[in-house]
Structure formats: C-alpha cells, structure tokens
Amino acid sequence: MGEIPDAEGVGTVGNPVCGDLMTMYIKVKDNRIEDIKFKTYGCGAAIATSSMTTELAKGKTLEEAMKITRASVADSLGGLPKVKMHCSNLAADALHAAIEDYREKTKKSKEV
C-alpha cells in the first residue's frame, strides 16, 4: 500500500462517483515488476483486490502480469460477492493501465 514517488508506470481506473477509484504504481527492472504499490478509495472488496493484485504481480514479467485478470484476482481471494465483481474488482485493470503507461513512456524515451 502507498505510492511510489519515482514510479515508471502509473495506472488509474474507476470513478469516485461510483465509489471506487484506484491507482497502481510500478517500477520495472529487466522486464520484471520490481516494485508495485497501490492507492485505493473504495469498499472492502476494492481494497482487497488492490492488495491481492500487487501480491500477484510482484516479481512477474510484464507479459505474465498482463495475464492477471479480474477473475484470477477474485479467485485468489477465494471469490467475491456477485455485486462486487463488476464495480470493485478493478485492480487488474489498473495494473494493465500501469504497464501500458510504462511501455508508452519507455517507447517515447527510446524514440528520443
């Protein structure tokens, strides 16, 4: 939990109006997620999925991390109530957004 001030990839998904908003921060070394942290505004399920996603992603290659899905996060938590599957299970999306942000940034820096 927390923020990585010099993160190389940042992904934010959700909307406070719906009651869930989360940001994932990643640091990457040799194509692997070296460090990952989250900030989450939301219900218990939102916080739990954020935390589980960071545990699942840490140490994985970017390709492996992209394969983490909402369903695999929910499974790792031992399941989520049906109503929470859609709204609060956003952490995998935030992770993917952070990886894409990292890829965009490194592409740009290579182009320069």
């Binding site: 939990m1 406070p16 908003l21 989360m22 989450t40 505004y41």
Partner: peptide, 9 residues
C-alpha cells in the same frame, strides 16, 4: 487516517 493514507483522493 489509515484509510485516507490509502486513498488517491
């Protein structure tokens, strides 16, 4: 305090 430390808002 703990939840606010965690919240991006």
């Amino acid at each position: 305090k703990r939840l606010r430390d965690m919240s991006p808002l």
